[in-house]
Simulated scan of single mutants.
Amino acid sequence: MPGKTFRGLSLARSAVVLAVGALLATLFAVPASAADPVGRITGLGGKCVDVAGASNANGTPVQLYDCNGSSAQNWTVASDGTLRALGKCLDIVDRSTADGAPVQLWDCGGGANQQWVVNSARDIVNPQANKCLDVRDRSTANGTRLQIWTCTGQTNQKWTAAGTSGGGNPSPSGFVVSESQFNQMFPGRNPFYTYSGLTAALSAYPGFANTGSDTVKRQEAAAFLANVSHETGGLVYVVEQNTANYPHYCDPNQSYGCPAGQAAYYGRGPIQLSWNFNYKAAGDALGINLLADPWRVERESAVAWKTGLWYWNTQNGPGSMTPHNAMVNQAGFGQTIRSINGSLECDGRNPAQVQSRINNYQRFTQILGVAPGNNLYC
């Protein structure tokens, strides 16, 4: 019998069980043994794949629910291509292949309605139906039933296993954005802005994208990167492009002056750090003498990223709070814009620039599989 082509994978029917199990294990970053831990599987709104009432009775609905660390959200992947919780399998009701068929918990029987493949796009797919695990009506409400549906690429069909990020590629740094997601966000980025440089900089501000719920962590990472993208043309520009501005960024009234030169403190890095007093403050905070050597921000990727994180985590700018606090305390993405460039953009001053930042944020939250939240505008 000829092989069956399935979303770019050719699986001979006799080898489906073995191949599906191996692929699940590989993309969930665990070995393909009898039953290896995956832990929680998060999706829309940062919520978890959950067994209703933590019941292992046949027919128990599988739903979306706040992540709580319970056994009802502790999944394993088996070498036979099944996903298991509470000793039973994720199962499509009545072996249906129709859009909208709900999923449930059921005794593991080896049927095709209990087989799942995880692909690099973070879809969990049933090969028999050639359909994706889907959050019904794109709702983030607790108790929303999960189902299968024609694969659309939408966020309500994107999943991330604990210990993995973005297509199952582990992020050793623990950062909520995987390298593959970072590359997806910035396909045309300057090679200077490395993912390793970003993750190396995280140690300077360990609370960044690491405070609050999984949803808040992802929202903060998306918000930071969205503003960075706007400031740098998609991580293309390392230095300010208008060289005529360069001499303007020296405030001679500061007691320390401008030891690197009148025109040395132009915009650099992901937040386009500028002015001698900002280089002095950032350098003091980071333990780097940026006042004497501001060029380090354009020479060293990790230093550049650290300056961006310094501003994000410690500076109110023209706003009333740091961008970090705006996201952690649920003030909303709009307040991060206000803290970065609110005096020029917010309150109707430049709505096109505000919208550009929001568009980036909405795109990045979609990549991270999380809702953008409220209060997007400033």
Rank of each mutant, 00 (worst) to 15 (best):
Met1Leu: 11
Pro2Asp: 09
Phe6Ser: 09
Phe6Lys: 11
Arg7Cys: 00
Ala12Glu: 08
Ala12Arg: 10
Ser14Ala: 14
Val17Pro: 13
Val17Arg: 15
Ala19Arg: 15
Thr26Gly: 12
Phe28Asp: 11
Leu44Ser: 09
Gly45Thr: 14
Gly45Phe: 05
Lys47Gln: 08
Cys48Trp: 13
Val51His: 11
Val51Asn: 08
Ala52Cys: 03
Ala57Thr: 04
Gly59Trp: 11
Ala72Gln: 04
Ser79Trp: 06
Ala85Ser: 03
Leu86Ala: 03
Leu105Gly: 00
Trp106His: 04
Gly110Ile: 00
Gln114Ala: 02
Val118Gly: 06
Ser120Val: 08
Ala129Phe: 02
Ala129Ile: 01
Thr144Arg: 07
Leu146Ser: 10
Trp149Pro: 01
Cys151Tyr: 15
Thr152Ala: 12
Gln154Gly: 10
Gln154Glu: 11
Lys158Glu: 04
Ala162Glu: 09
Gly168Phe: 12
Gly168Asp: 07
Gly174His: 08
Glu179Met: 07
Ser180Met: 14
Asn183Ser: 10
Ser196Asp: 14
Gly197Asn: 08
Thr211His: 13
Asp214Arg: 13
Asp214Cys: 07
Glu220Cys: 02
Ala221Ser: 08
Phe224Gln: 04
Ala226His: 03
Val228Asn: 13
Ser229Thr: 10
His230Val: 02
Thr232Gly: 04
Gly233Asn: 15
Gly233Met: 14
Leu235Met: 06
Ala244Val: 07
Pro247Cys: 02
Tyr249Glu: 12
Gln272Val: 05
Asn276Lys: 15
Asp284Pro: 14
Trp295Phe: 05
Ala302Ile: 06
Ala304Leu: 05
Trp310Glu: 06
Asn313Thr: 15
Thr314Arg: 15
Asn316Asp: 15
Met321Lys: 15
Thr322Val: 14
Gly332Phe: 14
Thr336His: 11
Glu345Ala: 01
Asp347Phe: 01
Asp347Ile: 03
Pro351Ile: 11
Ile358Gln: 13
Gly369Glu: 07
Val370Pro: 01
Asn375Glu: 09
Leu376Pro: 15
Tyr377Asp: 13
Cys378Asp: 12
